[in-house]
Write a protein that binds this DNA or RNA. Structure first.
Length: 410
RNA sequence: CGGGCUGUAGUGUAACGGCAGCACGAGACGUUUGGGACGUUUUAGUCCGAGUUCGAAUCUCGGCAGCCCGACCA
């Protein structure tokens, strides 16, 4: 993409009134636009990043054997009444002219359970799992921290259906491992944290927590074996011995980027979702639900990966891999290099603005935070080379123009 | 939902109750190009509504909006 065609611009100043790093940097660099508190537009750069995050999640969900679908956002009152969740204060409710009442979907156990009823009758139909990536709406009393806690946000929600607790437990463990893989690919160091099940279950659930001062949660964790518990439920002693190994328990603020729940039969009983086993006996289906917030993940990445000059995206989620800059009359050669890089499958953002000084282009490159910066100038062309620099790393190297595609495609 | 703070050009900021100014940005022309370059010139603003006052960006009330703290957060 050429910068001259990107309609967004960076801001020289950090937005006033924003104290959280993700809000400051993502707005300043033109990744998101705040329409209202907790309600954001994902601008072209941000949308590309979000789609990179989604693509990684999709790959891992598909690898689990889950299939993707898309459920409605407008969810009729009858669904919520069936599970006794109509009187939930985070739900946006609305009524149309004819008096039909809806809640905007803030989670979709009810909808998927009803759908499953239509297609699942026998043990032969189990187990199965399905997921979606969709905007969720939650009427948060207080949206905060940029895109970390929004009223409208993106969520990947996965639901699984099993014949018994043992099979749920097996899949639950698979999802746990799958989530760890997702976060590892996203460049995030997530702790699997034991937490309370809230209204869903009396058992522990597991949250995926990334240490960050911007987080709202507090976890007690062992760096050595990575055992971790949420402050809500823990009796681990700060500075004390880890009960699982000989490590020490630390305390830190953290961002919850994912969670997994064993739902049991709460929803299948509410909707009479049953199956018939080999003996002809009818039994309630055992369910699980599992969530990751891609938009919150994006905010978390901004919180974790930045420096005083701007963002520092991991390559797996950067909107582009390369920020290409043409200086002093090298535009013609830069355009060729731009094309060559794309031919090699390298995603390039080309700063082709001819009315901007070098300093401004450098500042924007740093702010936007793509992993690699390539500069073409008369100086480098004298060496038949371009300058390649990694964001956040000292030093640079000259790479011959003829090798640039091969060098950067890796 | 309780509490605190704040709303001035696109952005960031100034102005005692008394002429709304500055910088950047944006537009035009020219010179520039290795860390937000320079000259000339143009452009654009007091969140909305009431009230007090000779006079309101400034004081009062209401609304709307944002940030922060707390409560809440399957």
């Amino acid at each position: 993409m050429k910068l001259s065609r990107l309609f967004t611009k960076t801001e020289k100043e950090t937005p006033k009134d924003e104290t959280s790093v993700n809000a400051q940097l993502l707005e300043q660099a033109g990744f998101v636009y705040k329409n209202n508190s907790g309600i954001y537009t994902y601008l072209p750069l941000g949308w590309r990043t979000l789609n990179k995050i989604n693509a990684i999640i999709r790959e891992e969900m598909n690898a689990l054997g889950a299939t993707e679908l898309l459920m409605p956002t407008l969810v009729n009152k009858r669904y919520w009444e069936a599970s006794e969740r109509w009187d939930v204060d985070v739900m946006y409710k609305l009524k149309d002219e004819t008096g039909h009442e809806f809640g905007l979907g803030w989670t979709h156990e009810e909808v998927i359970t009803e759908i499953a009823k239509r297609y699942v009758q026998s043990y032969k139909d189990l187990p199965f799992s399905a997921y979606q990536i969709q905007s969720k709406f939650r009427n948060e009393a207080r949206a905060k921290s940029g895109i970390l806690r929004g009223r409208e946000f993106l969520m990947k929600d996965l639901y699984s259906f099993h014949r018994d607790e043992a099979d749920l437990q097996r899949f639950y463990q698979d999802v746990l491992n799958s989530y760890l893989k997702v976060f590892q690919r996203l460049g995030l160091d997530a702790y699997v944290t034991e937490a309370s099940g809230g209204a869903f279950t009396k058992e522990y659930t597991h949250e995926f927590q990334v240490l960050s001062e911007a987080g709202e949660d507090t976890i007690f964790y062992c760096e050595k074996c990575r055992y971790s518990q949420n402050k809500e439920i823990t009796n681990l002693p700060q500075g004390g011995k880890c009960p699982k190994c000989d490590g020490t328990i630390n305390v830190g603020k953290s961002i919850e980027v994912g969670n997994i729940f064993r739902l049991g039969t709460r929803f299948s009983k509410a909707f009479n979702l049953n199956f018939v086993d080999e003996k002809g006996e009818s039994k309630p289906i055992v369910m699980g639900s599992y969530g990751i917030g891609p938009s919150r993940v994006m905010g978390t990445l901004a919180e974790v990966f930045h420096d005083k000059s701007g963002l520092l995206w991991p390559e797996s989620v950067a909107p582009f891999k390369v920020y290409l800059i043409a200086l002093d009359g090298a535009a013609k050669e830069a355009a060729k290099i731009y094309q060559r890089l794309w031919d090699h499958g390298v995603e390039v953002l080309y700063d082709d603005r001819d009315d901007k000084g070098a300093g401004e282009k450098f500042a924007d490159a740093d702010l936007i935070g793509l992993p690699i910066r390539v500069i073409v100038s008369s100086k480098t062309l004298k060496e038949k080379s371009v300058e390649v620099k990694r964001r956040g790393k000292p030093g640079m190297e000259l790479v011959p123009v003829k090798d640039i595609g091969k060098t950067l495609e890796k």
